[in-house]
């Protein structure tokens, strides 16, 4: 927590756009996102075998991080925002993964 307290406020203030990318970079990122999406959809048409699901998960992660990092400016803003977002994300994944594991593998048989 101490890092968020001591960092330079000017860097964090929402209005300081000098560090942010310009429209050109945003479009470039969008093109990459579009390509990644095309790759995702291609799993529907092309058989990737056992690789398909890991590939989809990785692509999803990359898209997530790119939108959060660039469009939501997480890469340029205070780390606290990222901690809140990813804290919520990983908290949710952890809790619900345990729930699903308990329900799927350690529950009662159906009748």
């Amino acid at each position: 927590m101490s890092t968020t307290e001591t960092h330079d406020p000017a860097q964090a203030a929402g209005g300081h756009v000098d560090h942010h990318p310009g429209p050109r970079e945003y479009v470039r990122i969008a093109i990459i996102l579009a390509i990644l999406t095309a790759l995702e959809v291609s799993t529907y048409f092309v058989d990737f075998g056992a690789l398909a699901i890991p590939l989809l998960v990785v692509l999803m992660g990359i898209k997530f991080v790119m939108v959060a990092g660039f469009f939501m400016h997480l890469r340029f803003d205070t780390k606290l925002y990222g901690r809140l977002l990813y804290g919520g994300l990983f908290g949710a994944i952890g809790l619900y993964a345990i729930t699903l594991i308990v329900m799927s593998f350690d529950g009662a048989p159906r009748v």
Binding site: A10, A13, G14, L84, G88
Partner: peptide, 17 residues
């Protein structure tokens, strides 16, 4: 205290949840 705008911080807190 953190040099952050309340509203933006509030939005991030909410999005985390």
């Amino acid at each position: 205290t953190l040099g952050l705008d309340h509203r933006k911080l509030g939005m991030w807190v909410f999005l985390g949840s």
